[in-house]
């Protein structure tokens, strides 16, 4: 798997954390964010957030006291909770990249009942609606202030 802007250790921690943020679910028939395909997408899209994400990962490792991915499951949950509570821009950037790659995966979109396609050129249908709803407003007198 291509790690591009991260060291192998950072990528391993990020993958472990992504899987904690969004785990796979049999109930909804969706992969987790640590899924091979989704995680590759994440690594390809660090872009403008790369520095923030590296900062966040270094903070995560500092809280863990070792590589986050090496922790036991129970301990991982505690560390992730503490990490989320601290918040900040680096964490927000990390979570954003995870979410924006997860919520465009075909399997995830199908599970959500969303069509797997870009908006253009097919577009969407939006119902016209019942314009008689406006009748009470139409009946109002002019309500803008006159100036002369």
């Amino acid at each position: 798997m291509q790690t591009q802007d991260l060291t192998a250790d950072e990528a391993r921690d990020l993958r472990a954390l992504a899987g904690m943020i969004i785990p796979a679910s049999a109930v909804y028939d969706v992969p987790g964010a640590d899924d091979e395909k989704i995680f590759s997408d994440i690594l390809r899209n660090l872009e403008r957030d790369r520095d923030d994400i590296r900062r966040a990962l270094s903070h995560l490792a500092a809280i863990a006291g070792c590589a986050f991915a090496d922790l036991e499951a129970e301990h991982r949950a505690e560390v992730a909770k503490a990490f989320r509570e601290v918040g900040g821009a680096p964490l927000a950037a990390l979570v954003r990249v995870v979410l924006l790659c997860y919520y465009r995966d075909d399997r995830v979109m199908r599970s959500l009942g969303q069509e797997v396609r870009p908006p253009f050129p097919k577009g969407h249908v939006v119902e016209q609606g019942d314009w008689s709803l406006l009748d009470p407003v139409r009946a109002r007198k002019p309500m803008y202030r006159t100036v002369d």
């Binding site: 943020i21 109930v27 909804y28 992730a80 979570v95 979410l99 924006l100 919520y103 979109m109 959500l112």
Partner: peptide
């Protein structure tokens, strides 16, 4: 859209991490 909903709700602390993420997200989208 789907991504904006996830990001805004995550920043606002509405969207949990872990197993419950999927259930909550489906009530928001």
């Amino acid at each position: 859209g789907a991504i904006m909903e996830a990001i805004i709700s995550s920043n606002a602390g509405r969207l949990p991490w872990g197993e419950d993420h999927h259930r909550v997200y489906r009530k928001l989208l």
